[in-house]
Design a binder for these strands. Structure first.
Length: 419
RNA sequence: GUGGGUGUAGCUCAGAUGGUAGAGCAACAGGUUGUGGCCCUGUCGGUCGCGGGUUCAAGUCCCGUCACUCACCCCA
C-alpha cells in the first residue's frame, strides 16, 4: 500500500466543504476590494527564488524542493508566491495597463521542512499584493483587508503586530550600527546568535533565550530610533490609517521577517489558538523586489496567509457552518423499474435538481437507510407495481408524508411538490 | 538536522504483575409481506507498525528499524 509523503495531506470529502466555504469568503472580500485573481505555475526557475527571496534565507538555503528537468534547468516548486506573482507582473507588462495593480492568489506551496502542528511540506496560502504604490494607504489596506477577512469568518482574538525595518538605505545604516554595537559583546551571546551576528543580524531579535534577550535590551539600538524621516513618516501614517479603520495593532520592534525582500512596513497576525507556529499571516512592503528581478523600480506591498492554519482556528472556534444538502434519492425495486428510474434521474437533473439513484440493488429498507444517511430531502420510489400502474411514490423525508404521482407525467407533477 | 511522545479492528480507545486479543462507534443483515432516522439482535472486521532477541510462552520485557506526532531552527 502506498502512503502519502511526509508533510502532505489528503483533504477528504467530509472536509472539503470547509475549504470551499473559506475560499468563497476570501474571494468575496477581495473582490469587494477589487483585487483580481492571478494563477502562476507551481514551479519556476530556481534563480527566481534565489534572487527574489535571498540566498541567505532559510527558505532558499535549506527548504526548497529543487530538481533538474531534462534540459538540465534547475527548477523549484514554489516556496512562496510573491516572487512568482511579481515575475508574472513584469513578464506580462501589467504595469503598462495601469500604474497600480491589485492581485490575489490562492494555492499550494512547497517547503521541505520538518512537519509539525501548523506546518506542512505542501500547504496552501491565499495572499494579495498591491503593486505600484509607495504610499502608506497601500500598506494599510493590505493589513486592514486580511484582518477584515478573518473578522468576517468569525475570528476575533487576533494580535496584529507591525514594525518598520526602514528603506534599504536606512536599514543598511542601522544594521551597521547594530553590528558595531554588538560585536564587542559577541562572546556573551549563545552559539547560534553568534552566527546570526555575522550572517543575518536581524534574527538576533528572534532568539528565545532570556540571556540573549537581556543583552539585546541592554546594548542593541532600536530600529525605529534610526530610520530616516521619510521612513518614520510613512510608518506613522500607516498607523494612523489603521487606527482610522479600527484595526487594533501593536508595534513590535523585534518583529523581523525571514525573507530578504522586505522594506519599511512588516507585519504579522498571530492567534493563540494555533500551536507553536502561531502566525496566521505575515507580510510587508517590498519596494526593491521588482528591481531585484530585473524589472523597473516598482514599489509594492502584500500579505500571505496560511489556509491550513486558518482552518485550524475556524475549527477550533467552530465557525464553519454545516453544509446544506439538497438531494432527491430514487429508490428502485425490481429490474423492470430501473430504466424508468434512470430516465427520471436524467430528466430531473436537466431541470436542475440534485438527484441520485440506487446503485446497489438492495432492499427498499436498505435504500431508505442510504437516502437518510445521505441527507436526502425526498425519496422517489419506483417499483414494479408502480410501473404497472403508471405511478411513483414521493416521500418527504422530514415529515414522512408520501404521495402517489403519475409516472408518465412525473416531471411536471414533481415540479409543484419539490418547488 | 536534534530532542520528546505515540503506533492494537475503517474510527476512538481498553488490554496490572508475560499465557497467542476486547469495547464503543461505523459498516452490513434481521426485528413478518416493498419504506429511513430511535431501540433491540446478529454478522463482518486485527499477521497487536515492521525485524530480531529473551522465554516453554510476548500486544505485554530487551534491541533495532520505520511511520505518525509535538517541539527546537524558521515560517503560513
Amino acid at each position: 500500500m502506498y502512503h502519502r509523503i511526509k508533510g502532505t495531506r489528503d483533504i477528504l470529502p467530509d472536509e472539503i466543504y470547509q475549504w470551499h466555504y473559506v475560499e468563497d469568503k476570501i474571494r468575496n472580500y477581495l473582490e469587494r476590494c477589487n483585487y483580481q485573481e492571478i494563477r502562476t505555475p507551481l514551479f519556476e526557475v530556481t534563480e527566481l527564488f534565489a534572487r527574489g527571496i535571498g540566498t541567505d534565507t532559510d527558505v532558499v538555503s535549506k527548504e526548497m524542493y529543487t530538481f533538474q528537468d531534462k534540459g538540465h534547468t534547475s527548477l523549484t516548486l514554489r516556496p512562496e508566491l510573491t516572487a512568482p506573482v511579481l515575475r508574472a507582473y513584469l513578464q506580462n507588462n501589467l504595469n503598462q495597463l495601469s500604474p497600480i495593480t491589485k492581485l490575489y492568489y490562492l494555492g499550494p506551496l512547497f517547503r521541505q521542512e520538518r512537519p509539525q502542528k501548523g506546518r506542512l511540506r505542501q500547504f496552501n496560502q491565499f495572499g494579495f499584493e498591491i503593486i505600484g504604490s509607495e504610499h502608506p494607504e497601500a500598506d494599510a489596506e493590505v493589513i486592514q483587508a486580511v484582518f477584515a477577512i478573518y473578522q468576517e469568518l468569525g475570528i476575533n482574538d487576533l494580535k496584529v503586530r507591525i514594525n518598520s525595518i526602514g528603506s534599504r538605505d536606512s536599514r543598511r545604516y542601522y544594521l551597521d550600527l547594530l553590528h558595531k554595537t554588538l560585536a564587542p559583546h559577541a562572546g556573551e551571546f549563545c552559539a547560534t546568535c553568534q552566527q546570526r551576528l555575522e550572517r543575518n543580524i536581524l534574527r538576533l531579535f528572534d532568539c528565545k533565550l532570556e540571556s540573549c534577550q537581556a543583552l539585546l535590551d541592554q546594548y542593541a539600538p532600536l530600529i525605529l530610533d534610526h530610520l530616516s524621516n521619510a521612513d518614520i513618516l510613512h510608518f506613522e501614517e500607516v498607523q494612523a490609517l489603521l487606527t482610522a479603520a479600527f484595526v487594533p495593532f501593536e508595534i513590535d520592534q523585534k518583529l523581523v521577517r525571514g525573507l530578504d525582500y522586505y522594506t519599511r512596513t512588516t507585519f504579522e497576525i498571530t492567534s493563540s489558538l494555533l500551536g507553536s507556529q502561531d502566525a496566521i499571516c505575515g507580510g510587508g512592503r517590498y519596494d526593491h523586489l521588482a528591481e531585484d528581478l530585473d524589472g523597473p523600480p516598482t514599489p509594492a506591498v502584500g500579505v500571505a496567509s496560511g489556509m491550513e492554519r486558518l482552518l485550524m482556528i475556524l475549527n477550533e472556534i467552530q465557525a464553519i457552518p454545516q453544509p446544506t444538502v439538497d438531494l432527491i434519492y430514487i429508490a428502485i425495486l425490481g429490474d423492470n423499474a430501473r430504466q424508468a428510474a434512470f430516465q427520471l434521474v436524467s430528466r430531473l437533473r436537466a431541470q436542475g435538481y440534485a438527484v441520485e439513484m440506487d446503485f446497489m440493488r438492495r432492499s427498499l429498507k436498505a435504500q431508505m437507510r442510504e437516502a437518510g444517511k445521505k441527507g436526502a430531502d425526498w425519496v422517489i420510489i419506483i417499483g414494479e407495481d408502480e410501473i404497472q400502474k403508471d405511478q411513483l411514490i414521493v416521500k418527504n423525508m422530514t415529515s414522512g408524508e408520501q404521495k402517489n404521482l403519475q409516472l408518465s407525467r412525473a416531471t411536471e407533477q414533481l415540479e409543484t411538490i419539490l418547488r
